[in-house]
Computed example of a mutant assay.
Amino acid sequence: MNRRLFLLSSGASAMAGPALAAPLPVPPSGRIGFRVLRNGTPIGEHHLVFTQSGDTLRVDLHVALLVRLAGISFFRYTAQATEIWSDGAFQSVYSQVNDNGNHLQVQAERIANGYAIKGTHVPRYIGHPNTLPLTYWNKAMLYGTILNIQTAHSYPAIVRSPGWNRLPTADGGSVVAQRFDVTGKLHLSVWYDQYAQWSGLAFHVDGYETYERLPA
């Protein structure tokens, strides 16, 4: 199985808008968590923790997934990343991914003319000034250049919104959120509620994976 949690499509953006949101959509609790399901079966969790210190925002990402087949561990995926924002602007990200034994790292730092980006298999290059990391919590990523924090590739996305849906949550409740479909190399759907809070994710990669939001 080849994980694509952090992939989006290439191509020109079909939506116009700013690359940065103001203010940033930091949840009041300082946390966002999801239960991850594959074909309806829970396989792990995806968490984000937000820490504000003056004008600096730190966002820590933790993902741990395990797929079992007949009770035997079949596939394991973990990811950790740290984003730094200052005065509402994206400054840097550092990620480490274990894709079933394939270890990957990505680094990106803001410089005068954009972002200096490099990855395990990608030599250093300069990314567009409107680059944002593909960590989903900030809807502004749909309007800029998206940095894949697993591969270090960056690209715009083809995005459209078919409307609003009621999504199940991990505690048995529901949330109403706007759906955005991203197409290209990979098709996925991501949802944000009326407060621009990340509320759900769904995609097909060797199975149908969905995210259900955990209680704050």
Rank of each mutant, 00 (worst) to 15 (best):
T210L: 06
R35C: 05
H47L: 15
D55E: 07
L132V: 10
V26L: 14
V59I: 14
Q178D: 02
A89P: 05
Q197V: 10
Y211C: 13
V176Y: 05
R124V: 08
A14G: 14
M141R: 08
N98I: 03
S92I: 07
D181A: 12
G127C: 06
T135H: 08
Q197D: 06
Q194S: 06
T145P: 05
T51L: 03
K118I: 00
V175C: 02
L186G: 07
N2S: 13
F74C: 08
V159D: 11
A170L: 12
P168Q: 08
N130P: 05
A116E: 03
G173D: 09
Q105I: 10
G119A: 00
S9A: 06
I111Q: 06
P18Q: 11
I117C: 10
V182M: 12
L48K: 09
D206S: 07
I72W: 09
R38D: 06
G207E: 00
T183Y: 00
Y94C: 07
A79R: 02
S199V: 02
W191L: 03
I117A: 10
A140N: 02
A22W: 02
E109D: 04
A196G: 01
V93S: 00
F90W: 10
F74A: 14
A64T: 11
L69A: 15
M1F: 13
V59S: 03
N165K: 09
G101Q: 02
Q52N: 09
L8A: 07
G44M: 02
T82A: 13
T131C: 15
N148S: 01
L147R: 09
P18M: 13
I43M: 14
Q96N: 10
P42H: 09
G207D: 05
V182D: 12
N148L: 07
A70V: 05
G101H: 09
Q197C: 12
